[in-house]
Design a protein around this nucleic acid. Structure first.
Length: 571
DNA sequence: GCCGTTTTCGGCCCGACTGTTTTCAGTCG
């Protein structure tokens, strides 16, 4: 079965090739929009087709694109793509990755110098042939040469990894001469799980002075562009950072504009056009009159919308639903954590240390869920060791005030869907968190059956890190998430949003689906040491992107309301 | 290629910066 992401890759390739042919830009955009839609879709289109569902109901997909999607699902490709690949060498697409080279210049290089790959470009640059191209001066040639020697890797980094950089740059910018306001925008502000670059917005009377201060930051390796109101730099670690300086009257408009997402911006711009207004990074205008722009609130208001929080700005229905958006969950709503480890398995800290950390983090309960016996690498617990831990927890609970340690386990879901410990053992616990740690690559139908079987066990509370993906490292297991969510709703059990920054599993899209089905999501830190409780903040970010309110999250409930819900799943 | 409370045709987001220009095209976000 071909996945949405693979289809999206092919559509992006079609868009690149059409771009090189200088096709109608709006036709190209249609393919890029379709690719983006596919990447953000909750369900696999292959499944939808198998169930006989119409694809042209999807926004931006008409009869033609629906047909091409069907082609790709059924045959792995589509005639247009094959034709374009025959007409243009595939290597030309590589050239588009070189900074400063767009479709026009890439095509020109191909037509005039017969360059058809990065290797060809490098050879031509070394031979000094590029001077023949009108518009390619010495500077561009140097850029191209550098890019072909060390091809730019457009690697997205985990949002978590970007945090120290963001903090450092914010502090630096706040010290810029004459600067008034400074904020981070872009996908970082939208709490996307990974970021490709960082965007900052500042206000000041003298933009050039702020720009000059910005590029003097100690981590700046290269200045890519520098003007009176904006600059782009590359940091030593390769991360690109953009700064835009506007005056105070435009701060809100600039924040909206640079927070994105691009799709959200296009959607609100369309809305503005319908109202005969113009929106850009300076404000909302009627003719030349500025109606709004100082605050984000004013910008949305001028468009007839209430404020939309950054995490929702993905053009996934937030504009149509703007008047009835959920009040999103916040970190302070969390009353406890239902997934943690101790030294008993692969954690690094004692039970007491973990509990103290949970108390310090403002929580009122913590479920200790060490691994089960099958996971020998993690020193998983067998029946006897689990019994000892239970006794230890009972003793500790007797001493604790206003805090409760819940007895749990992160039990392995075996290949056949059985759980790694007998029901009699699991039934003694407060909750059972179950997860896949092996056989990630079962065929989707088998994987679905495996999970459904596990969920049918009498003591099954939470499906932990449901897909077991590791962002950028390991694709998630393939299974029918739709059926799992439906089964969880029917069974009255829960799905975890694992808050480890490299997991964030469920995804935002799956959270939205769980919410729609009325399945409560448990935001679990999966902490292996006290500091890991900070991961909860990343889980919250993802939950907010998934439209979850406090009510949609299991562990926002105080113990008195939580226990009956857990009990319901425990036989 | 998509889409429709002005429209089934004629729209489709728009401004800053760079490099190489003598007034602007290409790229980028």
């Amino acid at each position: 079965m071909i996945r949405n992401n693979q289809i999206a890759d092919l559509f992006d390739e079609i868009a690149d090739l059409l771009d090189l042919q200088q096709e109608n830009p709006f036709r190209i955009r249609a393919y890029r929009n379709a690719a983006r839609l596919l990447r953000g879709l909750q369900r696999e289109v292959a499944d939808m087709l198998a169930k006989g569902e119409a694809l042209d109901e999807l926004p931006g997909i008409g009869a033609d694109l629906a047909g091409k999607i069907r082609d790709v699902v059924e045959t792995g490709g589509t005639e247009l793509l094959y034709r374009l690949r025959r007409e243009l060498p595939h290597g030309l697409v590589e050239l588009l990755r070189v900074p400063g080279l767009g479709p026009k210049r890439a095509k020109q290089l191909h037509d005039e110098l017969h360059i058809a790959s990065l290797a060809g470009l490098r050879a031509a640059a070394h031979a000094g042939k590029l001077t023949k191209i009108r518009g390619l001066g010495p500077k561009m040639q140097a850029t191209i040469l550098a890019a072909t020697e060390a091809p730019p890797q457009e690697k997205r980094i985990l949002r978590w990894r970007a945090k120290p950089v963001v903090d450092s740059l914010l502090a630096h910018l706040k010290a810029a001469p004459g600067v008034q306001q400074v904020a981070v925008a872009g996908s970082y502000r939208r709490a996307r799980e990974t970021v490709g670059d960082l965007d900052f917005v500042a206000t000041a009377k003298d933009g050039a002075a702020v720009v000059a201060h910005f590029i003097a930051h100690e981590d700046v390796a290269k200045v890519l562009a520098q003007g009176a109101t904006k600059a782009s730099v590359q940091l030593r670690d390769g991360l690109q950072v953009d700064l835009r300086v506007v005056d105070e009257e435009s701060y809100g408009a600039a924040m909206v504009y640079f927070t994105g997402s691009k799709a959200h911006n296009i959607a609100i711009r369309r809305l503005a056009l319908q109202a005969k207004l113009k929106i850009n990074e300076y404000g909302v205008f009627k003719g030349s009159k500025r109606l709004a722009g100082k605050t984000e609130d004013s910008v949305y208001k001028a468009l007839g919308l209430p404020f939309i929080v950054p995490e929702l700005r993905e053009d996934r229905g937030e504009i149509a639903a703007a008047r009835r958006l959920p009040d999103l969950v916040e970190r302070r709503d969390l009353k406890g954590d239902l997934h943690s480890h101790t030294k008993a398995s692969d954690g690094q800290s004692s039970l007491e240390e973990m509990v103290a950390a949970a108390q310090a983090a403002g929580l009122r309960y913590l479920a200790v869920t060490d691994h089960s016996q099958r996971l020998t690498v993690a020193h998983g617990l067998d029946r006897k060791r689990l019994e000892r831990q239970r006794a230890q927890i009972d003793k500790l609970n007797a001493r604790l005030k206003d805090f409760r340690v819940l007895k749990g386990i992160e039990v392995d879901i075996l290949e056949d869907g059985k759980l790694d410990l007998p029901d009699a053992v699991l039934g003694e616990l407060d909750l059972v968190v179950a997860a896949i740690h092996s056989h990630f690559n079962l065929a989707p139908e088998k994987q679905t059956t495996r999970l459904l079987r596990a969920m049918e066990r009498p003591y099954f509370t939470i499906l932990a890190h449901p897909t077991s993906r590791l962002i950028g490292e390991r694709e998630g297991c393939r299974f029918d998430m739709d059926r799992i969510i439906k089964a969880a709703a029917a069974r009255g059990c829960f799905l975890e949003l694992n808050a480890q920054p490299e997991r964030l599993d469920l995804t935002d899209i799956h959270c939205q689906a769980a919410r729609a089905a009325g399945v409560l999501v448990s935001i679990g830190s999966d902490a292996h040491r006290p500091a890991d409780l900070d991961f909860l903040a990343y889980g919250i970010g993802q939950a907010r992107r998934g439209w979850l309110s406090a009510e949609d999250v299991l562990n926002t409930r105080p113990l008195s309301r939580l226990l009956p819900l857990l009990k319901r799943t425990m036989g």
